[in-house]
Design a protein around this nucleic acid. Sequence first.
DNA 1: CTGCTTTTT
DNA 2: ATTGTAAAAAGCAGA
Length: 573
Amino acid sequence: MSLAVRPERSWYLPFGHLAPDGELAAGEPPRNLPPLSSPALAPLRALLADPQVPKAGHNVNYDWLVLRRHGVELAGVVYDSMLASFVLDPARRSHGLAELARERLEIEMQTYASVVGRGPGGRGGRGEQPFAEVPVAVAARYCCASSEVVLRLRDAFRPELEDHQLFRLLDTIEVPLIPVLVDMEWHGVLVDREVLGQISRQFARELGELEQAIYRAAGTDFNINSTPQLRHILFEKLQLPALKKTKTGASTDFEVLEQLAALGHEVPRLLIEYRELAKLKSTYVDALPGYVNPATGRIHTSFNQAGAATGRLSSSEPNLQNIPVRTPRGEAIRRAFVAAPGWRLLTADYSQIELRLLAHLSGDPAFLHAFAEGGDIHRQTAAIIFGVSQDEVTPDMRARAKTINFATIYGQGPFALSRQLGITQEEATEFIKQYFTRFQGVRAWLDRTVAQARDQGYVETLFGRRRYVPQLKDKNFNIRAFGERTATNSPLQGSAADLIKLAMIGIDRALRERGLATRMLLQVHDELVFEVPESEQEDATGLVKSHMESAATLRVPLVVSIGVGRNWVDAKG
DNA sequence: CTGCTTTTT
DNA sequence: ATTGTAAAAAGCAGA
């Protein structure tokens, strides 16, 4: 039996194609399907009638969750066409089955829309019938075709996966990660709606006051959220200088408003605060409660496994990887993420993982030594580039060192660095030069990596995850410069993604083996969030820390900082 | 519906 | 001739 529950599937569930040992068996799709009215198929009828509307976009683990809601646990899954496509070329626009079939097999697949008889009006539009009411012969044909395509794609991908040595990545990281993500989404995270409600009322008050103050200062009412209207007020009515341009006109972004405010203008000063409040209120405070599942009382995000070109995960509906924390108001929102009664949140953060990977990959002696010593890496960097002892490093020196460390990871040039540090471009150029005379191994690695990317067309991570960088061949300087940043940043960001994925798989297995109730809830790129019974605090802390720190053996130690608390803020530090 | 702008991680 | 990785989401403007 094979079964499709969603259009544009990455893989279709080839039950009939899974041999007992978990190996996929090739062959004809099953022909004589029982009628859907057969009592044996009651769970499948329920499944097909699942009111859950397929979400926009693709997600590898969607089917696992739908099946689990109906009591069907998947096991022995060894392959996923979406992930195969993702490791072959993570930057491609889509890893959807129909597109892959078109490109790799020259097969034009029947669309889901035509199967459900969807007319104009799109999803749920006129003429659409629930999948459960599609005649079984039609559905079977469609589903079996999909299963068949997944299997044929597996053969089509195999030589390239072997040639590029990507099976290890696929088989030891990406495929084993699927059930871990399924569990995380299944558990969901608890938010305190009371807290969000209070914040909402508070923000509404402040927003109302700011709105009036802005109208007063501007001398007129207007739609503050409309960029064109705001441009008119700032740059025409108030005659403020346009400091930066976008494609369509004068920019009104934070940087511009900040500079205008520094010139002593009231409106931009108020706008900065208005923007912060408006953003936090609409995107988080007021939106998050709508994502609470009535059945579980928790928020179940989607972790998208084939989304980010570097190999990172992404999170959507809602995005729980960009919950505010930077400002006091942001922190208040994060405090609404809580543990259930009797439980605690545990957060585990990789310390400076990308800089450590830079040290490892470049082998730069100064960086290796600094990390071996332990301590504050930005302070150590400052001591090295300013030629003073660590005790003599001032807060300003440390801040500059921190900025240039990040600038290096991001491939930033003198222009951007000068703006960020508030120095001239010449000073920034000099500063960067100084930095690289002290860290020559880093300079050499950056150059080597770009050159390699130019030669072979791609860069790769610790675990062989590739990213192609065709921009390096572009005749446009800016596109090439972008390509260089991609080439140097992707191995760092992507290797960090490999490491945390590996740690997640190990932690998930260890928690099961030890029979602990602790569960992984969230991943935020270099951080994992768990919900832990009070009684398991010590066990979980040790287990998580040791698995994360030993995810790989590098030329520098991997260090993980762990905290426990009743909410996400208190669990940090 | 798509593109632009902004914000957060 | 510009100059910071990777993302998701929200509000708005203009089709």
